[in-house]
Amino acid sequence: MLRYTLLRIVGAIPTLLLVIVLAFLMVHAAPGGPFDDERALPPEIEANIAAAYHLDEPLPKQLLRYMGGLLQGDLGPSYRYRDYSVNELIGVGFPYSLRIGASAMALALLVGVGAGTIAALRQGTLLDRVVMGFSMIGISIPVLVVAPVLVLLLAVKLHWLPAGWSETGGLRHYLLPVITLALPQIAYIARLTRASMIDVLSRDFIRTAYAQGLGTATVVRVHALKPAMLPVLSYMGPAIAAILTGSVVVEEIFGIPGLGQFFIGGALNRDYTLVLGIVVFYATLIIALNLLVDILYGVIDPRVRYR
């Protein structure tokens, strides 16, 4: 198990390096510098700015400097928010994103796995078809449609929940963003769980368990749940990525000052260091979480562990 874990950790390093280099090169391949659209600056000042941000150095040297900073956990200064470092900006935005993202993920797992399991056990019944119908709709309707429509319905028309964002609004303000963000994941996880549970329940060892006189609840709990969760576990990586993506939209619509807002703002304002920093930060997060998922997979499936 230790060997397996170490192998996974070592395997993740090249991915991380690739991400950093790729993102760095992409940003620096962009035509036009970050300060182009400001009033024409005298060449000396421009040169000064360039020197201050080390933009006058050759690209490989810049890359090495950047990586050196990363090793110390430093993502560099922001081009736009002149007085802030990228680290500070992430520190401001990420807690919001983390709160809605993690809540959405927890909600999605809870509801998705539950609904999927029930649908699998009631396969072919009306309940099954209703759950599956709703989840297909949930998968098909993107966050950018769900979010405004829910705001329109629940906030603007019915006034049940607040539409906008308020720093002091409390839990009620989180409700709509989290549900919006979770819905497609609930749908997907429900379908995945159902399909996987049906597959596991049709396996021979489940028939053996029934032949041993175990009740349905025991069969599902002791024999079926673990293997049925493997595909869901595998989906956690893409799900995390999808929730990060979705949170960009949700933050935009609900006006939450999260990391997504900084990212889009940075992208539209050509704040390259900020955008680069957030990409590197998110990539590291995703890779780390994927690693965790891989290790968990090994814990659940003994055949993977000993390979």
Binding site: A12, P14, T15, A29, P31, A241, A267, A283
Partner: peptide, 20 residues
């Protein structure tokens, strides 16, 4: 596998920004 682990959508946004 390596590419899979990348947050692609963010790269696409980077691309869109960089290439107007």
């Amino acid at each position: 596998d390596t590419l899979y682990a990348l947050p692609f959508i963010f790269f696409v946004i980077l691309l869109m920004v960089a290439f107007e």
